[in-house]
């Protein structure tokens, strides 16, 4: 490994360094940051966004986008709470998560089989599902009847780990395993990297993209159900910034919107970074608008770093391929064909 490839690898996994730097800086400048309670609040905050972020990661790796996360969270939360009087709390929670899967199936059908652009299709379902959630409840939040059932979500299981944190970490491990060690996961990277090349190597991209959306919808359903149970309230109004923060965390962690890159562990780090910054800035009494400015600035800075390092990497790749071509030309002593075949045939 030469220095250049080490540098590129460092940029690829930069999120771990950024997270470490953020923790160190906050530990120095924010009095009271180094405390057990900080860890708990960071993890609690990360768990909700993280569940959505993990689902979004899968969709982004396949080169698609899911804007409907926030609406899905609202619908699932309302199902999980609103159905409690009728079918009991445990079953209502299951229905809540399944509602997320259903939205995922709808998105998947529109994008993978309807061949509608992912951003537009999920924009449509975002509007539609939010309207559905508002209509069902007449724009009012629903309050649960089984308060005790919701309490288990935030009970500590082991040290600072509550059930919702455990759900987040478990999902992260499962997604990481599936992405890196199964055919399905590896095919997702192939599709996101180059859909045409994936098709030519026999990968059914429509099925994979469909499943990616189902994973994303189910993860959002889980997030919505857990949030609603923890508040004992299902609200049809989702904070519009939720999707923005989640998308920012996932992209900062190195998952490209163009597809084919990223993994679950880096997403966890990205989510932890945003959550750490929010908790740290709250400790320092930074007003929320300056918090937005700093998080947005970090996002843009990382994008710029990403692009600069990519063009650096492409330049080295081009140099390497030029060297290889010169070498090949010397070996076979053949001139490159001119003009290329497909141009000649379409000219007439």
């Amino acid at each position: 490994m030469n220095t250049r490839s080490i540098a590129l690898r460092a940029v690829e996994y930069r999120i771990y360094f950024v997270l470490l730097a953020a923790i160190l800086i906050l530990a120095m400048v924010a009095p009271g940051f180094v405390a057990g309670s900080t860890l708990t609040s960071v993890l609690q905050g990360a768990a909700f966004n993280g569940l959505m972020g993990l689902g979004l990661t899968v969709v982004l790796i396949a080169g698609q986008l899911d804007l409907s996360l926030g609406s899905t969270v609202a619908l699932s939360g309302m199902a999980a709470i609103g159905l409690q009087p009728f079918i009991g709390a445990p079953l209502a929670a299951v229905v809540g998560v399944s509602a997320g899967s259903l939205v995922g199936i709808l998105n998947g059908v529109l994008v993978a089989f309807g061949r509608i652009n992912g951003m537009i299709a999920t924009l449509a379902t975002m509007l539609g599902i939010r309207a559905l959630a508002l209509t069902i409840t007449g724009s009012r939040p629903v309050v649960g009847v089984d308060l005790n059932f919701g309490l288990i979500v935030d009970q500590p299981i082991l040290g600072p780990i509550t059930l919702r944190i455990a759900a987040f970490l478990m999902l992260a491990i499962v997604v990481q395993y599936v992405l890196l060690n199964t055919n399905f996961g590896r095919n997702l990277y192939a599709i996101g990297g180059n859909v045409e090349a994936a098709r030519l190597s026999g990968i059914r991209s429509d099925r994979h993209i469909f499943l990616a959306y189902v994973v994303s919808g189910t993860a959002s359903g889980l997030a919505g159900t857990i949030l609603a149970l923890s508040l004992n309230t299902g609200s049809p109004n989702v904070d519009a910034n939720t999707i923005i923060i989640v998308l920012a965390a996932v992209v900062v962690s190195g998952t490209s919107l163009a597809g084919g890159t990223g993994d679950a562990m880096r997403t966890v780090a990205g989510i932890l970074l945003i959550s750490t910054l929010v908790v740290g800035m709250n400790i320092m009494d930074v007003p929320s608008y300056y918090q937005s400015v700093s998080i947005g600035t970090i996002l843009i800075a990382v994008i710029l770093l990403d692009r600069v390092s990519l063009s650096y990497g492409m330049r080295s790749a081009r140099l390497a391929s030029a060297r290889a071509m010169r070498h090949a030309a010397r070996v076979s002593s053949l001139e490159p064909k001119d003009p290329p075949a497909h141009e000649a045939s379409s000219a007439g």
């Binding site: 923005i244 007003p287 608008y289 918090q291 400015v293 947005g296 600035t297 843009i300």
Partner: peptide
């Protein structure tokens, strides 16, 4: 110039600009 994805660039900018606008009127 950086050929960055417009969705994510304008997303980041919207967070920054929203914060700046909010800081003028203190929310």
């Amino acid at each position: 110039y950086f050929r960055a994805n417009p969705v994510i660039v304008t997303l980041g900018m919207s967070i920054v600009i929203g914060g700046l606008a909010s800081s003028i009127v203190l929310g």
